[in-house]
Design a protein around this nucleic acid. Structure first.
Lengths: 196, 196
DNA sequence: ATCTGGATATAACGCTCGTCATAGTCTAGC
DNA sequence: GCTAGACTATGACGAGCGTTATATCCAGAT
């Protein structure tokens, strides 16, 4: 009984993250979501009784966690390698989708919650950003960068990668991500060589 | 005859830019738009016969142009002052809206066009980004930065500001923009002092 | 005073949305 | 086998969407 059909549920969440990263939050309908995941519409409300809000929140957490896992693994080879992998990850997503997909966390962050209460999906987005920043800042500190500068650089890295991803989609070119990659790499190398 | 009721039309475009920057593209309905601009629904299709696509495109151009005008003026005092004003502009929008508004150009960039053709609104977004980058790069070059580095830095500035704006909304805090502002300022000062 | 054309107002079209209710199906545990 | 509960299937609900059509208004040219 507690077995549950896990694959179906995870397929829906992963599909939601992908669809949100392409169309944005409110253009992602539960009907299309179920169809894309080959799950019946009724099942979505069986798995996610709180509706779209719950589904979106889990999708953001799913994407945030998946990226964090990759980032953590790649940072073991140092901040430069980690940031290079971070950029490469998003570059792959953008290019392989023919500039149609981006970051679902960003997509959720730029759509105002209808009510004046803070939506759980937005909170999940903030936590995803914070998780990535924390991993980057910790790696920088381990390589001799002061705390303030490490946190500032981590914020700059996440912000510029998110922005560049969107710019790549608008321009239909990977150039913004490539430019940002080069600037960030030089910056990080400098910060590590002579820690300010 | 050619007089036309310009104020009403411009009010609609400006309102569209604001509403898109808050809710995102597809959550912005023409009905709400007309209501917010105190214009009748029918007038919207009188001024914008091509419908929402035309309205959104003009809103993106409007916002892009307005930011470019401010940026150009502030860059006359040098790249550092210009970037400081650029960051301050977005900081004001985000904070004064209680972290509900962001950048309409970014909002349009992260929503996939339904058809596989390139939407004019997305093209307008790319042009807005390119305009800002060109202004920044030109200012950097005038202060002794090489072309490649100036263009790379300009891309980094625009990308990180856009990303930081979204991060501020998710976190409900101005910290990301402030962190990015500090890192960018140090970076630009360094690039100008000893041009690489 | 009349005419004209831009601007406004109102209603309706077909469609999709999130959500819910209600059955039917299947499988694990006794 | 049988039954309970997780899952599927189907259809409907009110609401909102983009868009169009049509009727009305009203300032300015004749």
């Amino acid at each position: 009984m507690a077995k549950s059909s896990a694959p179906s549920r995870e397929r829906i969440v992963a599909g939601a993250a992908d669809m949100i990263s392409r169309r944005g939050l409110s253009a992602t309908s539960i009907r299309d979501l179920a169809k894309h995941a080959k799950a019946p519409l009724g099942s979505t409300y069986h798995y996610f009784p709180e509706g779209k809000q719950q589904l979106v929140t889990e999708a953001v957490r799913y994407a945030g966690g998946a990226v964090a896992r990759i980032l953590r693994a790649e940072l073991k080879a140092g901040p430069v390698a980690g940031v290079r992998a971070f950029l490469g990850l998003w570059r792959g997503i953008v290019v392989e989708s023919d500039f149609r997909a981006g970051c679902p966390v960003l997509a959720v962050s730029v759509e105002e919650p209808p009510l004046d209460e803070v939506s759980p999906a937005l909170t999940a987005a903030a936590e995803a950003f914070e998780g990535w920043e924390r991993l980057l800042a910790e790696s920088l500190r381990e390589h001799g960068v002061t705390r303030d500068r490490a946190e500032g650089l981590a914020a700059l890295i996440v912000a510029s990668v998110e922005g560049a991803t969107a710019m790549c989609r608008a321009k239909r070119s990977a150039q913004p991500l490539d430019q940002v990659a080069q600037q960030l790499e030089e910056l990080i190398v400098g910060a590590i060589d002579r820690p300010a």
